[in-house]
Design a binder for these strands. Structure first.
Length: 233
DNA sequence: GCGACAG
DNA sequence: ATCTTGTCGC
């Protein structure tokens, strides 16, 4: 049974507080040759979650492998409980990768979360992999703006504590909210996100996972429409 | 009670 | 996330 992802909100809260204690903020890996990225999308009918995991080489950042896993949607979107909605499908995709990555970049928050366990931290702990949360918008923390140039960063603080970085990954473009997920430091997380960048706002791992998730969803939609058309003829 | 709120 | 066209700027 998927004890990792209870459907009940009470159980989910309790599990987050428990797993948050297992998060380790240590030095990020120095030797990285494989980087993974993950994201999710909804199936065309909105009843399933498409978990997507990609494996890239480093520092080349070329796509080596793509894995897509479909799981039934069991939870509505509730801020703070995202991992219980997308986690099952994304975890399955990550576990299906042919090799274990040295680092994982996740579309979503790391420890910059109400209970310290955003989806990047949740997945990082479950897989015991160095993980980084790369969010496109803020979940918690003060909205301090970094400088306008790529690489500029401002501390993401909450209740006086720094929990991540607001990082500018492209000149003059909206910053990303980066926080460590597991086995990584706050500074190291931002450094790795920049190191995995290829000129776009999103670092390659999550950018590819993002794009391929949308691509796969579109394919499913076309297949569904073709099937419906045949039924009519 | 009133706002805020990853994807 | 998802619904959606054109449009301003490098």
């Amino acid at each position: 049974m998927p004890i990792e992802f209870p459907t009940d909100a009470k159980a989910a809260f309790a599990l987050q507080r428990k797993l948050a204690r297992e998060v380790r903020l240590e030095a990020c890996p120095s030797q990285v040759s494989l980087v993974a990225g993950c994201d999710a999308a909804l199936s065309p009918d909105g009843r399933e979650v498409l978990g997507v995991a990609v494996l890239l080489d480093y520092p080349g950042l070329h796509l080596l492998h793509l894995e897509v896993c479909r799981q039934p949607l069991t939870m509505p979107y509730v801020p703070g409980l995202l991992s219980f909605r997308e986690g099952p499908a994304v975890l399955a995709a990550l576990e299906a990768l042919p090799q274990r990555p040295d680092l994982l970049l996740v579309d979503g928050a790391g420890i910059a979360h109400p209970r310290g366990l955003g989806i990047a931290a949740h997945l990082g702990v479950l897989l015991d992999l160095p993980a980084i949360g790369v969010a496109k918008s803020r979940l918690i923390g003060e909205e301090l703006m970094p400088g306008p140039l790529r690489g500029d960063r401002a501390p993401l603080q909450h209740h006086g504590k720094t929990i991540g970085s607001i990082l500018r990954t492209r000149d003059g473009v909206r910053p990303l909210y980066v926080s460590p997920g597991h086995r990584c430091t706050i500074a190291g997380a931002a450094d790795w996100v920049l190191a995995c960048g290829r000129g776009y706002r999103l670092p390659e791992p999550t950018r590819l996972a993002d794009r391929l998730a949308a691509e796969h969803k579109r394919l499913l939609k076309e297949q569904g429409e073709a099937h419906s058309a045949r039924q009519l003829l």
